[in-house]
């Protein structure tokens, strides 16, 4: 994860953060009034961007996604949920490029995200789902923790809201954009010096798997618990239901595993 912090030394990466954030915010804002969960989320075709930005610009895409979402919140929905929105949208872009680089799904001699083979498209879908679900997990868990929106409602809506555009729009976007970004030498792997690149190898691969499993366990487990598998009512907060396995606990384990896995890479 060291590239997430060391990238700030590069002026080009700082500029990419600003441009990605501006772009993401500009595409989020027009849809602010089409509310899905009041004060929390809305229809978001812009969700196609974080995964693409993550794969192209790496940590700059992740920071851009987080800051862009925060700026989007400035246009009417800035609240305590914006903190979890910041972290969740960071992971929305961060998880995909880590899955792409470290999980071993693409050929290690050809890791360019050009989507020129069925295997790469499949990997993109796996990576995009990881990012979309990771974002849903973190925001859903955070707002359940604060007693603002039940995990079942928010987790399910953000998952759909993120994953559909990121796959349906993300694939053509990346196919068209990759050659241009590569030609302009703006791929994050071309910008960062070798000493600032993240570590690879067995530990990184293990971290990537832990991160992905954490996301799946936290989100799907949390939804299962919320749906009644362990005694909690669907639209109740954990504190009100007061019995059975807590959504906060199950989703929290997933969140913890996601972060532990992230720091291992």
């Amino acid at each position: 994860m060291k590239e997430v912090f060391s990238m700030w030394k590069s002026t080009k990466m700082v500029v990419l953060v600003a441009l990605c954030a501006g772009l993401y915010a500009a595409l989020l804002i027009p849809f602010k009034s089409i509310v899905l969960i009041p004060g929390i989320t809305e229809v978001r075709p812009a969700s196609a961007l974080p995964v693409v930005m993550g794969l192209l610009f790496g940590p700059a895409g992740a920071w851009g996604s987080a800051i862009g979402n925060l700026i989007g919140d400035f246009f009417g929905s800035l609240g305590i949920g914006s903190i979890f929105g910041f972290v969740g949208n960071f992971m929305f872009a961060y998880i995909p490029y880590k899955v792409w680089d470290n999980m071993g799904l693409v050929n290690k001699n050809d890791r360019e995200p050009d989507l020129k083979s069925g295997r790469k498209i499949w990997t993109f879908i796996v990576a995009a789902l990881g990012g979309a679900l990771g974002c849903a997990l973190i925001i859903g868990w955070g707002l359940e923790l604060l007693g603002m929106v039940p995990f079942a409602a928010l987790g399910a809506i953000i998952t759909l809201n993120n994953s559909i555009p990121s796959i349906v729009l993300g694939i053509p976007l990346l196919i068209v954009l990759y050659p241009r970004i590569k030609k302009w030498d703006l791929m994050w792997t071309d910008i960062l010096p070798p000493e600032d690149m993240p570590k690879t190898g067995a530990a990184a691969r293990m971290g990537s798997i832990i991160m992905y499993l954490g996301v799946m366990f936290g989100l799907l487990g949390g939804l299962a618990v919320a749906a009644g598998a362990a005694g909690q009512e669907l639209f109740s907060f954990t504190g009100q239901a007061g019995e059975g396995t807590s959504v906060i606990l199950v989703a929290g384990i997933g969140v913890a595993a996601t972060f532990i896995g992230s720091f291992m890479q």
Partner: peptide, 18 residues
Amino acid sequence: YRGAFAFSTAIRLVPMIV
């Protein structure tokens, strides 16, 4: 500072991008 710079630049860019 670099984070704050990226944040304020992004805000300024939004109207141009829109």
